[in-house]
């Protein structure tokens, strides 16, 4: 695919990335180029096609929320972006680097640019909080030990867990674990963060603390692509909402339009089903 294709009229966010918090290393891309570019992506599990031709560009600093029924393919789409799922057709590039499943080296290059937060946290249970954050920078980026630790402490402070550096994951609440997972992903200086239903496994009273961290990342100019069931949050934080239905991007646009003036019957039905 050609990286020079016109970014198909998507409206970059109005946020000014230059005001970014110093904790976040500024993205490496040129201004104006999409960070994630997905073209005609198709993906099947066996004979079951779950993504039926997806085109999506995500601009630098943009916050995109993907909504839709379960089974609409939104999690699969997210997992395709860092190669956890292998797709059959179409192309995908992150920060100008194409996703090549067959090249382990290219995959690792790409994954250094993409941070992922999982629904089930997936902290490493045998490592302390600090070591969870420092592991990948040490092994992959060969970051110096003192620098690595300073940065890990800084990021843990960023998510409000400075005092938990030496705690073990099983000593933390779900909300705290998820915030550690966010710090762990940030430590790799990703150009884009993928959030896969990151509050779905949390008790209701713990959802807020995680969402506040995500919101502050958005304010700091981090590019975010998130699958979420928290419609209020999506409406408040996202620059653009993508509504997926049966493997396609069915409707997309700014939150006010999607939530206020849904056009298609599928989206109307989806939104009204949320209130039942």
């Amino acid at each position: 695919m050609s990286a020079s294709a016109d970014p198909s009229g998507t409206d970059p966010s109005g946020a000014d990335p230059s005001a970014a918090n110093p904790v976040l290393v500024s993205p490496h891309t040129e201004v104006g180029a999409p960070i994630v570019r997905i073209t005609a992506l198709r993906k099947s599990f066996g004979t079951n096609e779950v993504l039926k031709g997806i085109d999506l560009d995500v601009m630098r600093g943009e916050v995109v929320a993907v909504i839709g029924k379960s089974g609409s393919g939104k999690s699969t789409l997210l997992r395709c972006i860092n190669g956890l799922e292998v797709f059959q057709e179409g192309s995908l590039s992150v920060d100008g680097k194409p996703l090549l499943h067959d090249s382990a080296l290219a995959m690792r290059e790409l994954r250094q640019r993409v941070g992922m937060i999982f629904q089930s946290f997936n902290l490493f249970p045998h490592l302390s909080v600090g070591r969870n954050v420092m592991l990948a920078p040490r092994l992959v980026k060969k970051r110096r030990a003192d620098e690595n630790e300073a940065r890990a402490r800084q990021l843990l402070a960023r998510v409000g867990l400075a005092e938990k550096f030496d705690a073990m994951p099983d000593q933390l609440s779900g909300g705290q674990q998820q915030r550690v997972a966010i710090a762990r992903a940030l430590a790799m200086d990703p150009a884009v963060m993928l959030c896969d239903e990151i509050t779905s496994a949390l008790d209701p009273e713990l959802v807020g603390e995680v969402l506040r961290v995500v919101e502050s990342l958005a304010e700091d100019g981090m590019t975010l692509l998130m699958v979420t069931h928290e419609m209020g949050f999506a409406r408040k934080v996202a620059d653009r909402i993508i509504f997926m239905d049966r493997g396609r991007v069915h409707e997309s646009g700014p939150p006010d339009k999607i939530f206020g003036h849904p056009e298609t019957p599928e989206l109307k039905q989806f939104l009204s089903s949320l209130h039942d």
């Binding site: 860092n82 190669g83 956890l84 382990a104 690792r108 290059e109 994954r111 250094q112 993409v114 941070g115 992922m116 999982f118 089930s120 997936n122 902290l123 490493f124 249970p125 045998h126 592991l135 990948a136 092994l139 992959v140 997972a181 762990r184 992903a185 790799m188």
Partner: peptide, 25 residues
Amino acid sequence: RGQIEAGESLALSRVQIFFHVVLPP
């Protein structure tokens, strides 16, 4: 499965995932 996926998404290699993520637990 999520442990291995977390290692993969942090750009660890297969060998690194085996020795640092899979083996100790």
